[in-house]
Amino acid sequence: MTTHVWGYLEEYEKEREDILDAVDTVFRSGNLIWGPSLVAFEEEFAGYHGVSHCAGVDNGTNAIVLGLRALGVGEGDEVITVSNTAAPTVLAITLAGATPVFVDIDPQTYLMRVDQVADAITERTRCIVPVHLYGQCVDMDPLKEIAAEHGLFVLEDCAQAHGATQHGRVAGSMGHAAAFSFYPTKILGAYGHAGATITSDAGVDAELKRLRYYGMDRERYYVVTPNGQNSRLDEVHAEILRRKLGRLDEYIADRRRVARVYDEALADTDLVLPATAPGNEHAYYLYVVRHPERDRIIEAMKAHDITLNVSYPWPVHTMSGFSHLGYEPGSLPVTEELAHEIFSLPMYPSLPPKEQERIIEALTATLSTL
């Protein structure tokens, strides 16, 4: 049996009837773009996060791009973030016209070192993008204090943290705005590309909704914002997502159940298991472990027909496409060290107990040979 790391097929089989009904509902309605399903999803997604507004967009990258633009970030500005993230986080900053500036990460949680942010601020800094990575939140209270002190915006990258909480607050509800991806593998996933940006600022939301629609306001064919684009969330995905939103807490509960089994079964191994920061409730988008013999472990597990993922093997600042930023090897030491050691075990809500047991047995046997 091949282990589907993301569980896409298992989820579809379980929810197939509802997913197909969602598609049929939209097709029969005749509203394929900008209809009642999008309006309903935006209201419900904003409500889940306790914020006032949501703008559905075509993918998670543009959720960040348009979020930054709606906050007024552009040419000549700097945005502080991390290099231990998916490249689209950083690409979005450059697409908005700004320059990314990196700080290192915590060696236990792999999240932004908030205590390094103040030293990274310059007169050009306009925004901070904390990445809520792997399913838990960056320490937001001190980060918000730094932002307030320096007059900076905070745009949360929540692509991997749907439903995660910190001190009872849902990821995405703590900054000036927050961006989400609904890529099929996400905790709340669509069946193609989809995203959203949320905020409680009515002015930011109005600009977001202009930016996603060619820069047009209420009047069709009349542009009021010159850097808009075609970036709308379609009705099919909006309808699928609003139905799946009702199951989001169930997905997270199942992920936490899977994580507990790993925690207990692997506690006595020499793997470094996930650490949850104080105040956080981890949603376990990924179950990320650490070992100095990572590559040998991954190769050995292939013999058991088990695929282990690495998120991410190349820190963004080490990629040739970002060499112009001028970061030398060793400039982000924790990020660079972890890139050689971290990897993910299969994690999805419908992971069968027997399959998880097989994964654990194969992994434990592999570790015993190192």
Rank of each mutant, 00 (worst) to 15 (best):
T81R: 09
Y348R: 06
A120K: 05
G330W: 09
D77F: 12
I64C: 04
I128V: 15
A267C: 09
T89H: 10
R294K: 15
R255L: 15
N62T: 09
A63Q: 08
L38S: 13
N62E: 09
G326M: 12
M319R: 15
N309G: 04
V223T: 13
A87H: 12
L245D: 11
N280K: 09
Y110M: 10
P36Y: 05
G72F: 11
D254E: 10
E44L: 14
D58C: 11
V129L: 05
A178D: 02
G47S: 15
P226D: 15
A179R: 01
T276G: 11
M319D: 13
H340A: 15
H340V: 08
Y48M: 10
D305L: 10
R358S: 09
R256V: 10
L20A: 10
T61C: 11
L211H: 07
M140K: 00
R247A: 12
L133W: 07
G172Q: 01
V23G: 02
R113Y: 00
A177M: 02
E13Q: 08
K302D: 10
F45C: 04
C137M: 10
A196F: 07
V103C: 05
T199S: 14
I146R: 01
H150M: 02
Y312P: 11
K302M: 14
E361W: 00
N227C: 14
L20G: 03
D139K: 00
R247T: 09
G30W: 14
A179T: 01
V272C: 07
A147Q: 04
E239N: 15
V289I: 09
V51S: 05
D234K: 12
N230R: 14
I306A: 06
G175M: 00
A22T: 10
E341S: 08
I80F: 11
A265W: 03
G175F: 01
M112I: 00
M347D: 03
D201F: 11
E250G: 07
L345E: 02
L20Y: 08
D24Q: 10
V5K: 02
E156S: 01
L351S: 01
T364A: 03
D254Q: 14
G215E: 08
P352L: 03
T185Y: 03
R358W: 04
A159N: 02
